[in-house]
Design a protein around this nucleic acid. Structure first.
Length: 351
RNA sequence: GACGGAGCCUUG
């Protein structure tokens, strides 16, 4: 039973939902922990429906089960529903409180994150770091620093979060100082520093970070790739992409972004087509790049087709930016009636 | 011995 459950978790960690499903069919005996693992597997793969099914079919639930489902619901953007469920939990602990705090932070509601943090009966290193990250991801530099300074202990997560917010705000020297000063570094902190340099246009130093890394993960390669992509170095971006041993949607989107934003529209459109040919599912960002490219190239028909295909074939809801690029193109092409229709039917307020 | 919360990489 324990090894079956461990297999389930292992598949979940690697994002292999089909592996989970296989175990699901063959597992001889179910336990609460096994159900929780299944639940976590769905959540990790953004399968909210599956998670809901598992959760409601469970006859016994633990704190873990509740926390996973609350996180899964919040992750899919249903913050209010997550909160409602959170309120209904038979009991809460430091983990579920922290999860809720992080959910609000993710949604940009720093105030509510603060409220939760202050209301928590007890906090630990993870909750402190979550609060630090809440400030960091919403651009509150001095508040991040204040949290960091008042922490009794710190770990890689807290150091890296602080470095990232300094670098993101353009305080590169501070960031580098912290990076050099932190007691230990891992692949994530190295990559954070790399992108810090990249965000501020320091390509050489970004590359130097990459070269100096002890171990390079997929996300480190992605960091280097996007460093080139963001700075318009298409050749190096392409070279890096080709040199990668493993790629994911972030790698592909980075290349796509590089071409579409630099005005190489036809190349971007080609890449997007290849994406679909190879069977890689384009996500909302890939579609956005394609829209940008079509818009730039004046390909009204293709832009419209792409927009519709995204929604109906791929089930990806159109976001504000998708509308914006399509509308921009329609305006420039003189289709003002179509623009009126779009504005009237889109699920956003026009801005 | 197996399950839940925090940092990094693509669009904003």
């Amino acid at each position: 039973l324990v090894s079956w459950t461990a297999m389930l978790s292992a598949y979940a960690r690697n994002g292999h939902l089909y592996g989970c499903k296989a175990v699901y069919r063959e597992i001889p005996e179910w336990s609460l922990v096994a159900w929780n693992a299944m639940l976590a597997a769905c959540a990790k793969n953004d399968d909210l429906c599956g998670a809901r099914e598992v959760f409601s079919s469970m006859e016994v639930r633990s704190l873990e089960s509740w926390t996973v489902i609350v996180c899964a619901i919040a992750d899919q953007g249903h913050l209010e529903e997550a909160r409602a469920l959170f309120e209904k939990m038979p009991e809460c602990d430091i983990v579920s409180w922290t999860a809720m705090l992080a959910a609000y932070a993710q949604a940009g509601n720093t105030l509510e994150a603060e409220t939760i943090f202050e209301a928590m009966p007890e906090v630990d290193l993870v909750s402190w770091t979550a609060m630090l990250a809440a400030y960091a991801m919403n651009g509150y530099l001095s508040e991040s620093r204040a949290v960091f300074d008042s922490m009794h202990e710190r770990n890689l997560f807290s150091w890296t979060a602080l470095i990232a917010v300094y670098a993101g705000k353009g305080f590169l020297e501070e960031a580098k100082f912290l990076f050099d000063f932190m007691p230990e570094r891992d692949a994530v902190s190295w990559t954070a520093m790399l992108s810090g340099f990249a965000q501020n246009g320091h390509l050489e130093e970004a590359k130097a970070m990459f070269d100096a890394m002890a171990d390079r993960h997929l996300f480190s390669w992605n960091g280097l790739l996007s460093a080139y992509a963001q700075n318009g170095n298409l050749d190096q971006a392409k070279k890096t992409f080709d040199r990668m041993h493993e790629r994911n949607s972030i790698s592909r989107n980075s290349v796509l972004t590089a071409y579409s934003q630099s005005g190489h529209s036809s190349t971007a459109i080609e890449i997007f087509k290849d994406l679909k040919l190879v069977g890689e599912h384009p996500d909302e960002i890939a579609f956005l790049c394609n829209l940008v490219a079509c818009s730039h190239a004046g390909k009204l028909r293709d832009a419209g087709d792409s927009f519709r295909s995204m929604v109906s074939d791929f089930g990806i809801p159109a976001r504000k930016l998708h509308y914006r690029y399509l509308i921009d193109l329609l305006c420039r092409s003189g289709y003002l009636n179509e623009v009126e229709d779009l504005l009237a039917t889109m699920p956003f307020l026009p801005d």
